[in-house]
Amino acid sequence: MNTHLGLIGKKLGNTQIFTDSGEVRRVTVIEGGPCVVVGKRTPEKHGYTALQLGFGKKRTKGVNKPEGGFYTKLGIDAPKVVKEFRVAPEVAEKFEVGQQITVADVFEAGQFVDVSGTSKGRGYTGVMKRHGFAGFKASHGAHEYQRHGGSIGMNMTPGRVFKGKKMAGQHGNKKITVLNLRVVKVLPEEGLVLVEGGVPGPRNGIVTVRTAVKKADKRFEA
């Protein structure tokens, strides 16, 4: 489980960056935070340690009374998105409820991060688009069977279709995490993180960026 601190952010889009040595890095620009700590989970009360972070501002019309009351007490606007980040107790200690966290607090150029987001929804999709099946021939007598998936199993033995059989269905609009993306640049003033590579979801989609679980920090060679 990822117990590193992260931020909730918004995917702004893709561009490219020239490094000092003149190489091109393809980057995704993410507006990371600022996030507000809206709550804390403690071992005593909840059995685990976590920080609850809020991002953005919900329009007043969408805030009901109990929710509004909760945030008024904290003295902040009701956030659009709230997410919980499981963190180590030492990390949780450093932050107070109501405190703001910005990109500069969490990320550094050169480190690796994992980015999660909701992938673009493609609706109910056939087997060729969803699983990359090859389909069938357009000629040689093939007839009304160009984009089908073929057989889905055998006969009496096993007498059933195996679980997990790749078939048509909903494609996309699902939480996807991309691991080990390198942070190319952090712009604290603009609140931007530039991450090398692609990130799931459409522009203006909500993503979470966390320090990578599987890859240790490595300094970025300029």
């Binding site: 702004l12 889009g13 561009t15 960056i17 620009v29 603009e190 931007l192 530039l194």
Partner: peptide, 8 residues
């Protein structure tokens, strides 16, 4: 996107 336009 203004932020990206500025970066570029």
């Amino acid at each position: 996107v203004p932020q990206i336009a500025a970066l570029e």
